[in-house]
Write a protein that binds this DNA or RNA. Structure first.
Lengths: 110, 110
DNA sequence: TTATCATATGAGCAAATGATCATATGTTAA
DNA sequence: TTAACATATGATCATTTGCTCATATGATAA
């Protein structure tokens, strides 16, 4: 046998681990938070809903870039949108977004 | 002038935004959570501290891969380590890790 | 209808990322 | 000291990611 024995610990820990599929989903969710542009978009929406071009102006990035990132945020169900004439307004989907970001802020401010 | 006017909203939102540097730090933190291998490592450490080779065995990944990822987790201050003889034990650094992961789990289980 | 504004999206590219392999470092026992 | 084990790390490579450009779609007004 190679290395020392961990079988007892491994069994114990293994029995408490969620399915790999779940953990992959979780990682995917956090990956969405893991980009400066997207974090800045989310933070902007803390304050109020905004249309795409306002977000682009605010962050000094292309409309295209914002639109691409909003697509990701939508798929992760972190933001919702409503159309009003030509413009589309985006808003935070729910309060998990705030909670998660707040926890993150607490961690880095130490 | 191009597009419609947002100056009032932009000023309002802008005044509430943290520094770009802070937001970048935040994104970097979440990026660490944004990988399946690292999430699985963190989850394993929920249960108890573990040495590198035990983690590698548990997750069926190379010792090298685990070691590289642990380095990232250490730099993000998500895990700590202690040496005991030849083996190094890793453990969760604090409870923010649990809170953040739990919030994430809540979001995806809906 | 056409023109214009607002947003979405596909293609292409440069940069970042995660795994592997080989090797280095650190620790203990013989 | 040497041998064996445990961990760390540098180099390399394939994949992923985020941006830009060009263009498509959607909506309104003239």
């Amino acid at each position: 046998m190679k290395g020392h024995d961990h079988s007892r610990l491994l069994n114990e820990v293994n029995s408490q681990m969620p399915k790999d599929e779940t953990l992959a989903e979780l990682a995917e969710l956090f990956a969405v938070f893991g980009d400066t542009t997207r974090i800045r978009i989310l933070w902007a929406l803390f304050e109020s809903e905004m249309c795409v071009c306002a977000i682009a102006e605010l962050l000094h990035v292309t409309q295209s870039a914002v639109s691409h990132q909003l697509k990701l945020l939508r798929h992760a169900k972190l933001v919702g949108s409503r159309r009003q004439g030509k413009t589309v307004f985006y808003f935070l989907a729910d309060d998990h977004v705030r909670s998660i970001i707040n926890q993150g802020m607490e961690h880095i401010s130490e």
